[in-house]
C-alpha cells in the first residue's frame, strides 16, 4: 500500500502544497482534484520519484520509495501527459518495447490481443504517426492491459478519448481494483467506476 505523510512540494519559489497526507490501500481508487496549476501533475510525478519533495515521505509497503527504487518501480505503472510512443514504430512494436522496458516479455499474440481490445484492430502494424490523437492515446493505454503492476498512477488518462474508450478505461480500472490493485489519477472528465468507492483529494 501507498502511504504519503506530510508531503510538501514546490516548483521554483511557489509552494504548491504542504502537509499533504493520505494512504491508499489495495482495492482503493483516488482522484486528485484541483484547478489548473494546483499541483496535480507535480503530486503524481513526486509519487513516481521524478521530483524530490521538499518535506515529507512517500512509503510503499512501509519502506521509503527512495530506498526501494527498482522494487517500487516494478510494482507501479505511470501514464503521463505524454504518450511515450514512437511515431516511427508501429502500435505493436511500441507496445512490445514499452512492456519490455517495464520487465514484461510480451509475445506478438498477447500484444495483438491487447491492441484489439483497445479498439485498434487492423491498425496494429501501421506506424503510429498515421494514427489520430485518440488512437495514439489508446496505444499508450494498452500498457494497462499487459502490465502486472499493483499501483496505477494515471495523469489525465481520458484526454483525446471518445465515449467508447472512456467506458473501456472505466472497465479496466474496475477490473484492476477487483484484483486488489490501486489507482490514483487526475481527470477533468467524470470517471465512474462500478463497485468501488471513489476517494478524492482536493488540492487548492
Amino acid at each position: 500500500m501507498l502511504e504519503v505523510s506530510n508531503l510538501a512540494c514546490s516548483r521554483g519559489d511557489h509552494r504548491l502544497f504542504s502537509g499533504l497526507g493520505f494512504a491508499l490501500h489495495p482495492g482503493q481508487i483516488m482522484q486528485v482534484q484541483g484547478a489548473n496549476g494546483s499541483g496535480k501533475t507535480s503530486l503524481l510525478r513526486t509519487l513516481c520519484g521524478f521530483l524530490t519533495p521538499d518535506e515529507g515521505e512517500i512509503t510503499w509497503c512501509g519502506k521509503s520509495i527512495r530506498e526501494l527504487d527498482e522494487e517500487y518501480y516494478a510494482e507501479m505503472l505511470y501514464l503521463g501527459h505524454l504518450n511515450a510512443i514512437k511515431d516511427e514504430l508501429s502500435a505493436l512494436e511500441n507496445l512490445r518495447i514499452s512492456a519490455g522496458l517495464s520487465g514484461v516479455e510480451l509475445d506478438e499474440k498477447e500484444a495483438m490481443n491487447a491492441l484489439r481490445r483497445m479498439g485498434l484492430r487492423r491498425r496494429e502494424r501501421l506506424p503510429t504517426k498515421v494514427l489520430s490523437q485518440g488512437q495514439r492515446r489508446r496505444v499508450a493505454l494498452a500498457r494497462l492491459l499487459v502490465s502486472d503492476a499493483k499501483l496505477w498512477i494515471l495523469d489525465e488518462p481520458l484526454t483525446a478519448l471518445d465515449v467508447g474508450a472512456v467506458a473501456l478505461i472505466q472497465e479496466l480500472v474496475a477490473e484492476h481494483l477487483a484484483r486488489h490493485g490501486m489507482v490514483i489519477f487526475t481527470t477533468h472528465q467524470p470517471l465512474e467506476v462500478a463497485g468501488a468507492e471513489m476517494r478524492s483529494l482536493l488540492l487548492s
Binding site: C48, G49, F50, E70, E71, Y73, A74, M76, L77, Y78, G80, H81, L82, N83, A84, I85, K86, D87, S98, L101, S102, G103
Partner: peptide, 19 residues
C-alpha cells in the same frame, strides 16, 4: 525526452545505467 519515453525508461524496474 520530448515524447515521454525517457520518463518511462526511468521508471523501468531495471538499472537506468544499463539502459
Amino acid at each position: 525526452y520530448q515524447d515521454g519515453t525517457l520518463e518511462q525508461m526511468m521508471l523501468a524496474p531495471q538499472s537506468l545505467s544499463m539502459l
